[in-house]
Simulated scan of single mutants.
Amino acid sequence: MVTKARKTKETDISVSLKLYGEGKNNIDTGVGFLDHMLESFSKHSLIDLDIKCIGDTHIDDHHSVEDVGIVLGSLLSEVLYPAKGIERFSNSCIVMDEACVECDMDLSNRPFLVYELDVYGKVGNFDAELVEEFFRAFILNASISAHIVQKRGKNKHHIIEAAFKSVAVSIRRAIAKNDRIGIPSTKDVL
């Protein structure tokens, strides 16, 4: 496990991860819905995660959600790059009842996000707009290029959970070991 911490006036966060784990996790962000999504992310990426966040949730969940994405993404970047002996490219399409979300991914060390989920309003007490904030923080800080696109769906919980699972499965596939490829770039560096 490798660990990264970040403390601001708004949040105090510690994240530990094991890239090639078993999907074990211990997550407490202070935001119940985010905990549920990150537990699912850990399970389906097979990345072991320990996350603790103490945030100013008495204001709202924004800072905690975004800052967890920043710390998790930064730590993932530290363990991914320079990339060598992995697939690098991947995609997955995850169905959850009526919802279907696709994630196409390149572990390029060049961050870019296409986010096309039609989720607004609330899921329980959680502001659905924070999903985009999380993914933007996570993807950009992880230096991943990802397209997260809703193909269909109506239930916000299903759409969001399918998105987290599709990102998780795409990461699992992209980090799959492939020693034949060496450095997976014609530039000879990632």
Score class of each variant (00 low, 15 high):
I13Y: 02
S14Y: 10
S16D: 10
L17D: 08
L19M: 10
G21K: 07
G21T: 04
G23M: 11
G23H: 12
G23T: 09
K24R: 15
K24T: 13
K24M: 08
K24E: 15
N25F: 13
N25H: 07
N26A: 06
N26F: 14
N26V: 09
N26D: 15
I27V: 10
T29Y: 14
T29A: 06
G30N: 10
G30P: 11
G30D: 11
G30H: 11
V31N: 02
V31T: 00
V31M: 02
G32S: 14
F33G: 01
F33R: 03
F33E: 03
F33C: 04
L34D: 00
L34Q: 00
D35G: 07
D35K: 13
M37D: 14
M37N: 10
M37Y: 15
E39M: 09
E39R: 13
E39P: 02
S40L: 14
F41R: 02
F41L: 10
F41V: 13
S42V: 04
S42E: 09
S42C: 09
K43W: 01
K43N: 12
K43R: 11
H44S: 07
H44K: 12
S45P: 02
S45H: 08
L46N: 05
L46Q: 10
L46A: 03
L46C: 04
I47L: 09
D48K: 12
D48M: 15
L49K: 06
L49N: 07
I51S: 08
I51A: 11
C53Y: 11
C53S: 10
C53H: 04
I54F: 07
I54Y: 04
G55S: 12
G55F: 07
D56A: 02
D56L: 03
H58W: 15
H58K: 11
I59R: 04
I59G: 00
I59V: 06
I59K: 06
D60R: 07
D60W: 04
H63L: 07
H63I: 11
H63N: 10
H63Q: 02
S64Y: 04
V65A: 06
E66I: 13
E66P: 08
E66D: 08
E66H: 05
E66G: 10
E66R: 14
D67L: 07
V68N: 07
G69H: 08
I70W: 00
V71G: 06
V71D: 12
L72Q: 01
L72M: 06
L72R: 03
G73A: 01
G73H: 00
S74I: 05
S74M: 13
S74R: 04
L75Y: 01
L75W: 14
L75P: 09
L75F: 07
L75A: 07
L76I: 00
L76M: 10
S77I: 02
S77Y: 04
E78C: 03
E78G: 04
E78N: 13
E78K: 12
V79K: 02
L80G: 08
